[in-house]
Write a protein that binds this DNA or RNA. Structure first.
Length: 400
RNA sequence: GGUGAGUUACUCAAGUGGCCAACGAGGGCAGACUGUAAAUCUGCUGGCUUUCGCCUUCGGAAGUUCGAAUCUUCCACUCACCA
């Protein structure tokens, strides 16, 4: 493995690198003398499970681990009590300490599906931030001016558009930056939305005389299933790492071809060359794009579940969508005889309300045993039925 | 602390006494077309044991009125300017 190849993989799909020379030197030193270095990642444990967007960064950290990095995983238990203002149009809600602890545990479990645990150290930033005390905190706030703080994009936007900014939110970047001082990190990774916070680390390392300034590697924010907006839980366009294998597989299959390549770059473990080969294959019409997408869905599903799960998901997917068959594992419900169809749809959890059910029947989206129905007054007589709404919502009901 | 403006459904945003379950846009869901694609076109998008009917919604509470998202009062929150 050459240094150049290592550096190329490190550079792959990054949005921005600040002080690449420093990274080059660290990696070169490792190759020449085996000297290791540290890469920092801050985690905001406000949401208990992570989605593929987060794993873009993990993937990059895994690459670093191959080339001599020790990962400093910082659970922002202290900072989470403030709430990261990043990308938020409103002041964030704060979480209780118990919730944060619980979320952090879930986080770690999921993260080690991608990272090598033996080359990772987990820290809680309350460890040093608690010790800082009021005096230390005030000293920290002296290191930055309000005007510069307001330069930050999302602060500026909120300020200009008349949204509220809490003073405590100014502390967030300062404290995240202080983490880099406490741990003397060599490199920090984050999403592009973290640029300000991460650069603060550089600034503070200088002010506090750490003797080095961390290099910064920013990863792009991955687009969600819609291909336009960033992947996020609140937009409901995410693929969670804890999604069931079949869901995960199906979600990846539903992205556009264009987005698929983006996902390849950001998420796949395939090398740059392999991906280029696939691209050329599709362009030359030698490979069907659906096949390429299946491979990606398979790879990701296998990563977070298992090979067997991925195989099963692939089969189930083709069965359900390609051959229009009913999936194997659909929920079952016992219902009373003579139940109104709309009510049955609600009871079996595939419609949120009878009104919605009625609308969908009118549009011909509802099927019983694969037969489209048009009568919204229908009552179900004794027997077993497969109810279906659209292409992906199913339920088996036993009536009577 | 003072003055002024504002708070409408998932989001943005119209509506300033009855024609309002509330214009429009985005999003979402569904239908057609497909590779479960994407793009495009079309419909729907508060709830209700049953829909040319009924019920609950427009920051919260109370009131005026035959009738309130719209008027009044108080409260909460947000913003701007002044201190």
């Amino acid at each position: 493995m050459s240094i150049d190849k290592a550096l190329n993989e490190i550079k792959r799909a990054t949005a921005e690198i600040i002080d690449f020379e420093a990274i080059e030197k660290l990696v070169t030193d490792y190759f020449e003398s085996g000297k290791e270095y540290s890469v920092k990642l801050g985690l905001d444990p406000t949401s208990p499970d992570i989605h593929l967007g987060h794993t873009v960064i993990l993937q990059k950290m895994a690459t670093f681990q191959k080339y001599g990095a020790n990962i400093q995983l910082i659970v922002g238990d202290f900072t989470a009590s403030i709430g990261d203002p990043t990308g938020k149009s409103e002041t964030r809600k704060v979480l209780s300490f118990e919730e944060i602890e619980k979320n952090a545990a879930t986080y770690k479990e999921q993260i080690f599906k991608v990272l090598d645990e033996s080359k990772t150290t987990v820290y809680f930033n309350s460890e040093w931030l608690d010790k800082l005390g009021s005096r230390g905190m005030v000293q920290l706030t002296r290191e930055y001016s309000v005007a510069r703080m307001l330069e930050r994009d999302d602060f500026e936007k909120r300020y200009k558009s008349g949204k509220s900014i809490s003073v405590s939110e100014f502390l967030y970047p300062l404290m995240q930056g202080y983490d880099s001082v406490a741990l003397k990190s060599d490199i920090e990774i984050g999403g592009t939305d973290q640029k300000f916070n991460i650069l603060m680390g550089r600034h503070l390392q200088r002010s506090y005389g750490v003797g080095k300034e961390q290099a910064v590697l920013l990863m792009p924010i991955i687009e969600g299933l819609d291909g336009v907006q960033k992947m996020s839980k609140s937009l409901n366009n995410y693929i969670g790492v804890t999604d069931a294998p079949n869901d995960m597989f199906a979600k990846i299959m539903s992205v556009s071809d264009e987005l698929m390549w983006r996902y390849y770059d950001l998420l796949s473990s395939k090398s740059i060359e392999e991906i280029e080969r696939l691209k050329a294959g599709v362009e030359g019409a030698e490979v069907h794009p659906k096949k390429v997408k299946e491979d990606l869905a398979y790879e990701i599903t296998a990563r977070f579940h298992s090979e067997d799960d991925a195989k099963a998901a692939l089969e189930a997917f083709n069965k359900q969508f390609k051959q229009n068959q009913i999936p194997d594992d659909i929920p079952e419900f016992d219902l009373e005889e003579g139940i109104w169809i709309c009510k049955a749809l609600v009871e079996s959890g595939i419609e949120p309300s009878t009104s919605q059910g009625r609308r969908d029947i009118k549009q011909g989206a509802v099927r019983i045993n694969q037969e489209k129905i048009g009568d919204e007054q229908l009552k179900l007589s004794k027997g077993e039925y497969i109810l279906q709404v659209g292409k992906r919502k199913f339920a088996k009901v036993k009536v009577g």
